[in-house]
């Protein structure tokens, strides 16, 4: 077999192999701890460029708040507190960034949602 022919035949074989393997890539889910880590990094980045949307606005927007956020909304009155990322001081975040499907069961906690398939 000539080098050129060999190379073309190799190319076709590898292209087919890549195609088959590529189809499997979409079937894998990201680990929940990675989603948690990415989410935390995004919120940190968002906060760095100004305040987050307030908890009240988030609620109005149709999203539920978790127990801790709910409590935070009720007890804090200082300016800026409503935009604070209270997840940054929550144990759920710490667990979720380190454990796959952590033992957290609060409704409306994004870190819990990441563990659900």
């Amino acid at each position: 077999m000539s080098d050129k022919h060999q190379s073309e035949s190799d190319n076709r074989w590898f292209e087919l192999l890549a195609l088959q393997e590529h189809e499997e890539a979409d079937q894998e889910g990201a680990p929940s701890r990675l989603k948690a880590r990415v989410y935390s990094a995004l919120l940190k980045k968002q906060e760095a460029s100004g305040p987050l949307r307030t908890l009240a606005e988030t609620r109005t927007n149709g999203y539920g708040l978790c127990f801790f956020e709910d409590l935070w909304e009720q007890v804090t009155s200082a300016e800026g507190a409503q935009s604070y990322n209270c997840c940054s001081v929550c144990h759920a975040r710490v667990l979720a960034e380190r454990l796959e499907r952590p033992p957290i069961y609060w409704a409306h906690c994004p870190y819990v949602a990441f563990g659900k398939k």
């Binding site: 979409d26 989603k35 305040p51 994004p110 990441f114």
Partner: peptide, 24 residues
């Protein structure tokens, strides 16, 4: 608008595809 819950939804919606692609 920096809605934290929407950001969570963004991660949940796209992370699997990105992860699968990068991992492979």
């Amino acid at each position: 608008r920096k809605d934290r819950k929407a950001t969570a939804e963004f991660v949940a919606r796209c992370a699997d595809s990105v992860y699968g692609y990068v991992r492979h």
